[in-house]
Design a protein around this nucleic acid. Structure first.
Lengths: 118, 118
DNA sequence: CAAGTATTTAAGCTATTGCTAAATTAAGTC
DNA sequence: GACTTAATTTAGCAATAGCTTAAATACTTG
C-alpha cells in the first residue's frame, strides 16, 4: 500500500515530464481513444522520422502513460489513462481549447465569406 | 473573450513546461502561501546560486505562474494560482504525497525506536 | 534458413537547459 | 556623488533532449 503510493508519486513526476513535450502529447492523443500500431502512429505524425516516434513511444511507455501489446511483428500502443491521474484533466483542457480554437477560426472564415447585410 | 481563451491556452502549455522542472516546483512551493523576496527564496534554496534562482523566477514569471511586486530594492514574488488552472491539483497531489511519505518515514522510525513487545 | 516487413537500437549531431562566476543595474543611505 | 545592499543580466560551460541516418532485431512466410 505504501509502495503503491510511492510508485504513483514517482509516476506523476515522470508523467509530467513526458507530457511536457508537445510531440509526446501529439502521440498520446493518437493512442487516446484507440490502440494503434507504431507504424500507424509514425505515418500519421509524418513531420518526423520513424525512429523519433519510436523513441518518444518508449519515453511514454517508461513513464507508464501508454501500454504496449505485441502481436506478430506489430506493436500496438494505447494510452493508460489511470497513470495520468490529475494530468488527464490538464490534457483534456488543452485539447478542448484546440478544438474551440479551430471552431472559432471556421466561424470567422464563414463570417468573412458570407455577404454582409448592413 | 476569444483572446482570453487563446491566452489561457498558451499559458497552460507554458505552465506545464515551467513546473516540469523540480527546481521550479520547489521555488513555486516557497511562494505558494506567502509572498517572499528573491533573497529569501535564494537563501532558502541554498544548493544553488542566486542567479540560478533569479533565472528560474523569471521563467515562472514569464509563464504567468508567479507575480512580481517591487518595493525599494526588494522584489517580492508570490504564486498566482489562477494561472495554474487544472495544474494546481497536480501540484497539490505531488506535495501531499511528499508529506505522506515524510509521515511514513517518521512513523517507521518511531516504530524502530520503540521497544518491541512480542 | 533466406527474404521481407515492422519496429527498435545505436551513433552522432544541434539546440536547449540549468547552472556558475563575473559584471551590471537599481534603490536607498551617508 | 560615493557606498552598500538587493537583485538581475551576461557570458560561457557541461549535460541533456530530440532529432537523423544507418544498423540491428524480431517475427512471418515461402
Amino acid at each position: 500500500m505504501q509502495v503503491g503510493t510511492r510508485n504513483r508519486r514517482i509516476l506523476l513526476e515522470a508523467a509530467m515530464e513526458a507530457i511536457a513535450s508537445p510531440r509526446r502529447r501529439q502521440i498520446l492523443r493518437l493512442v487516446w481513444g484507440a490502440e494503434r500500431s507504431a507504424g500507424e502512429i509514425a505515418s500519421t505524425v509524418r513531420d518526423v522520422s520513424w525512429p523519433a516516434v519510436s523513441q518518444n513511444l518508449r519515453v511514454l511507455k517508461d513513464s507508464g502513460l501508454i501500454t504496449e501489446r505485441r502481436q506478430g511483428t506489430h506493436r500496438y500502443y494505447k494510452a493508460d489513462r489511470r497513470a495520468l491521474g490529475p494530468l488527464e484533466v490538464v490534457l483534456r483542457q488543452m485539447w478542448t481549447r484546440d478544438l474551440d480554437r479551430l471552431r472559432e477560426l471556421a466561424e470567422e472564415e464563414a463570417r468573412a465569406k458570407r455577404p454582409r447585410h448592413d
